[in-house]
Design a protein around this nucleic acid. Structure first.
Length: 271
DNA sequence: AGTGCGGCCTGTCCGC
DNA sequence: TGCGGACAGGCCGCAC
């Protein structure tokens, strides 16, 4: 479950091996991901130079002269840098080989991820054009969220997880941010005051920023043998801690299912 | 327009 | 020990 910090860490990890390299070959072993990998992807990408490796929300894209390869890691996807000697394993679905004998390899056991192609500006792509702001961008403010939430009856948790409002807040960080802000995850989005959005927006930024920094310090070995990038040792305050004592008040942390996802919170600290 | 849910998919864990 | 079933979750697309 790569959250945004893991995706950004992946981008930074692969960038040095791919930037300004030319794609020699694209090998697709499994077309059937969330959406099919385009059959003509090799024809479109081979021989082209990678001009940039970027990220928008949880999408990573490789910018070529004639378009972009869009990659999403879904729930279980991971990227690693291999050579032609690295053994291919069961869920290694696609290889993008570049000059210098390096291969960008996508592994995704659950196939929730995708690899797509667009010739348009990336921001015009169907999956990307309607996304909300990046959480660390200055335009993501309490004022913005407060305005968006007006009259919204959905829970504040599903509101902050809605990528049309803000991107990059996955299930784990939603629980963590709401705890830090002292807001009950069941509360209707429209009933959260501007002052409480200040706390919440700040909590989201702090949580994500810390994780990205941690990713920088514990940067995965993208070319290593095991290759499976591990997730950061998170210092999680409530997530996954049902029955344990709240770090603030000692009350036992509660878990329930919300929109088919586990939510963790403290009934004392979050109102 | 907003809300909520189904579905995609496989590895891991638990109980019998 | 082996096996079946529940569970995990990002996020689109659809139905209401």
């Amino acid at each position: 479950m790569p959250e945004l910090p893991e995706v950004e860490t992946s981008r930074r990890g692969i960038e040095p091996y791919l930037l300004n390299k030319t794609i020699n070959k694209v090998t697709i072993r499994q077309h059937k991901l969330r959406w099919p990998i385009p059959k003509n992807l090799p024809a479109l990408a081979e021989g082209k130079k990678i001009r940039a490796i970027c990220r928008r929300a949880k999408y990573i894209y490789l910018k070529l002269d004639n378009g972009s390869i869009i990659i999403h890691l879904g729930m279980s996807g991971s990227l690693r840098i291999c050579t032609n000697k690295t053994p291919i394993e069961k869920h290694d679905h696609i290889d993008i080989s570049v000059t210098g004998n390096k291969i960008l390899r996508l592994r995704d056991p659950r196939k929730f991820g995708c690899v797509l192609w667009t010739t348009d500006d990336i921001n015009e792509h169907k999956l990307i054009r309607s996304l909300g702001p990046e959480p660390l961008d200055d335009i993501f403010t309490a004022g913005y969220m407060h305005k968006k939430a007006r009259k919204r009856t959905c829970s504040i948790k599903s509101f902050i997880m809605n990528s049309h409002m803000v991107v990059g807040v996955g299930n784990i960080y939603a629980s963590e941010s709401l705890f830090k802000a002292g807001i009950n995850p069941k509360r209707k989005a429209g009933s959260v005051s501007l002052a409480r959005f200040e706390k919440l927006v700040n909590a989201i930024k702090v949580t994500l920023r810390e994780s990205i920094e941690q990713g920088g310090t514990t940067l995965k070995d993208f070319t290593g043998g095991d290759g499976q990038p591990g997730y950061f040792a998170q210092k999680l305050l409530v997530y996954g801690r049902a029955g344990e004592e709240c770090t603030q008040c000692g009350e036992s942390v509660k878990q329930f299912v919300q929109q088919a996802r586990s939510t963790y919170y403290c009934t004392q600290c979050q109102k």
